[in-house]
Design a binder for these strands. Structure first.
Lengths: 227, 227
DNA sequence: TAGATTGTTAATCGATTAACAATC
DNA sequence: TAGATTGTTAATCGATTAACAATC
């Protein structure tokens, strides 16, 4: 017996990212009242192979039935458990600019149980304001809030010029994970988990793919005549 | 001779995404006046291997010198050329919510030559307003602006419930690429390039990695006793 | 020249797919 | 039971790394 399951082998991060796609899609299926789904159907709707869906899930256990596939609501709950969002997760956001404020308004983060305990900024004009129920504090309050609320995840939504300083500050308060919107590599101690967003990268690769589609690179499509 | 270069083999998308990281970093080096850099140094600063940097660049040509590495400004320009952003790129944004407005304020997109020609929304209270110089139009104006400005890239910044409809609309106007912020898979005709953002996926995988670090999954860390 | 670093090939590593026995 | 679909292994595919000859 003993379901598959995280057996020493680290589950690849790409697999985890796919789990989040399954989760989102299953959430929609739950809402529309779908009861069961096969790996084949789920795969088609998401745009991956059925094999991959089964393999990704197989890392964490056996959730399906050999006759009728997966029970949508059960799988949804299991994925929430695996991803650690079946409970509320407090976070702090540093930077009250457009990204910080957009996050405070994000319904999808709220739906996933993420609770922004405060936005921190240096701009005195913003401090004291409330954004969608989230207070904007002075940076000097960061340490207190992080400790009082037991926050483990910090979001960096400040310009590149300030990002490393903010990261150091967050680490000093005891933060264990950083979601970084500044387009740069942060230097942090071992054990602190960093997830970089690099929003631009998506758009830049889009212009490349567009040109590739139009055959812009074909003119280079030559090897040495003697090869 | 004939530099390496896109020889039938499609360059992997992950490599293209790394090129955007190199670009961003080189941009900072240009600003701080650094003249030359080796693959080793660049790799260390970005957090990849030197081999990989050379291999990624090698897909597109020979840009370095066997003695002194790469000339920063030249490599920067070449990457801009490869990624297709050495010229202005008009885009349209559908959805004037927090994401759409944040994009209109984004300095980094502007710096990369992306020009938002309009934000489109159905909310009559927003139509007619100007966000950081970008007008908000009614959706009925989409077709006209896209054609007048020769826009090839559309950004979807609307809720999931409207996203597929907007995608169909964009495709109908002749848009060739979509940058999609709605957390779902869009169905589009072959030849239309889609880049999905899935912002949440990053944060969700962060909570997973945090739990993984704390050994939450180790309790499953057993195989059948007879294996 | 001697030394350093590139460009590129071959070896390795890891992730995806195909296939199928187990099973509901 | 017969049929469908999972869970899982072996085969394949692709991407990364290591190594080194070419060369500035």
């Amino acid at each position: 017996m003993a379901a598959g399951v995280v057996n020493n082998k680290k589950v690849p991060l790409v697999a985890i990212k796919r789990l989040t796609l399954y989760l989102t899609h299953l959430g929609m299926l739950v809402e529309s009242g779908v009861q069961r789904i096969s790996s084949e159907e789920l795969a088609n709707e998401i745009g991956v192979s059925a094999s991959l869906v089964r393999r990704d899930l197989g890392h964490f256990g056996r959730f399906g039935s050999s006759r009728s596939g997966y029970e949508v609501e059960l799988l949804y709950d299991r994925l929430r458990g695996i991803l650690g969002i079946n409970t509320e997760t407090p976070v702090v956001v540093v930077g009250a600019g457009h990204i910080g404020q957009a996050l405070a308004h994000s319904g999808s983060l709220a739906k996933r149980g993420f609770r922004i305990r405060g936005i921190f900024d240096v701009d005195t004009r913003l401090i004291g304001r409330i954004v969608n129920g989230v207070p904007i504090y002075a940076k000097s309050d960061l340490d207190e809030i992080v400790k009082a609320e037991g926050v483990k995840i910090g979001v960096i939504a400040v310009p590149v010029s300030a990002a490393q300083r903010v990261a150091d500050r967050l680490v000093a308060t005891g933060i264990e994970a950083i979601w970084n919107f500044a387009p740069m590599r942060l230097v942090v101690p071992d054990g602190v988990v960093v997830e970089n967003v690099h929003l631009d990268a998506g758009l830049l690769s889009l212009t490349y793919r567009l040109r590739e589609k139009h055959g812009v690179f074909l003119k280079f499509n030559v090897k040495a005549p003697d090869s």
